[in-house]
Amino acid sequence: MLSRIANRRKMPEQELPRDEAALRAMLNPARLPRHVAVIMDGNGRWAVKRGLPRSVGHRAGVKSLREVVRLAGELGIGALSAYAFSTENWRRPPEEVSFLMELFVEYAERELAELQRNEVRVKVIGRLEGLPERVREAIAMLERETLKGKRLTLNLAVNYGARWEIVDAVRAIARKVKEGKLQPEEIDEKVFSSHLYTAGLPDPDLLIRPAGEMRVSNFLLWQLAYTEFYVTPVLWPDFGRVEFLQALVSFQRRERRFGGLNRNPVG
């Protein structure tokens, strides 16, 4: 397994063109991932490298998200999950946390019209009760006003932690068992998945990890069981349409085995 990971890391990004049209021509529309997950990492480092406040990096990261959402919708990818703020991120300096909360409210207000125009449905996943009231109100508005979006489901993970998601699912199932609505022997993977924040969506086919980090950072732990990983040294604010297309081309070059010997085509 380690050798397979090493071989994948050796796949040079420079082998792929940086021309959007050329990359799109390399894609097979019938074999695109149904669900792509993205860990939006590297905003702070991007800013520090330029001698700028970390807040500037977070704003630049919003632009990257906008471009990826646009392209995912254009290509017909059904779902995109973006890790925006983890349960661990509360440990950051208070001023940075406060800025991120306000940035989310700003995102909801400024991006709404485009999200509606592009038929994007927004769902925010995480422990929303732990967020400031102003942020919860922005979330409610964004989800309500994009409810009719049919082209792309955008999952924004805010105050999200996969371990807590699993705990919440276990608690919900336990309550149903206690109330006699569910028998223990009826609990299987399908039942468990239906109690996760991502219920109703397919598991991610592809996870994109910018900034060169080789960890999942408590993101979608249950759902990533057979997900293909794409790691790039590109920091999130520099991750745009070309980088997203390169990740998709890399994904389509692989053969997925799902733990078995028989090879399965991607997609």
Rank of each mutant, 00 (worst) to 15 (best):
E189G: 10
E189N: 09
K190D: 14
K190V: 13
K190W: 06
F192V: 10
F192S: 06
S193N: 10
S193W: 00
S194L: 03
H195W: 01
H195V: 09
L196C: 08
L196E: 03
Y197A: 15
T198P: 10
T198D: 12
A199E: 11
A199L: 06
G200Q: 05
G200Y: 09
L201G: 05
P202W: 15
P202S: 14
P202E: 14
D203L: 05
P204K: 06
D205L: 07
L207A: 02
I208F: 10
I208G: 13
R209N: 07
R209C: 09
P210K: 11
A211V: 08
A211M: 10
G212W: 00
G212N: 03
E213H: 07
E213Q: 11
E213G: 09
M214S: 13
M214R: 06
R215I: 13
R215T: 12
V216N: 03
S217E: 02
S217T: 02
S217F: 11
N218A: 08
N218K: 10
N218R: 08
F219M: 01
L221Q: 00
L221W: 04
L221N: 05
L221E: 05
W222G: 08
W222H: 03
W222M: 02
W222E: 07
Q223D: 13
Q223I: 02
Q223L: 04
L224C: 07
L224D: 02
Y226E: 08
T227L: 02
T227V: 01
E228I: 05
E228L: 13
F229R: 01
F229E: 07
Y230E: 11
Y230V: 14
V231R: 04
T232W: 13
T232Y: 11
T232N: 06
T232I: 10
T232L: 07
T232E: 07
P233D: 14
V234M: 00
W236Q: 07
W236D: 04
W236L: 10
P237I: 03
P237C: 00
D238F: 02
F239V: 12
G240E: 13
R241T: 12
R241Q: 14
R241W: 06
V242D: 09
E243T: 14
E243D: 12
F244A: 13
F244L: 15
F244T: 11
F244C: 12
L245R: 13
L245C: 12
L245N: 11
Q246S: 04
A247H: 08
A247V: 08
L248D: 04
L248F: 00
V249N: 02
V249W: 00
S250H: 14
Q252P: 11
Q252H: 06
R253K: 09
R253L: 15
R254Q: 00
E255M: 08
R256I: 06
R256V: 09
R257W: 06
F258A: 06
F258C: 02
F258V: 03
F258G: 00
G259M: 04
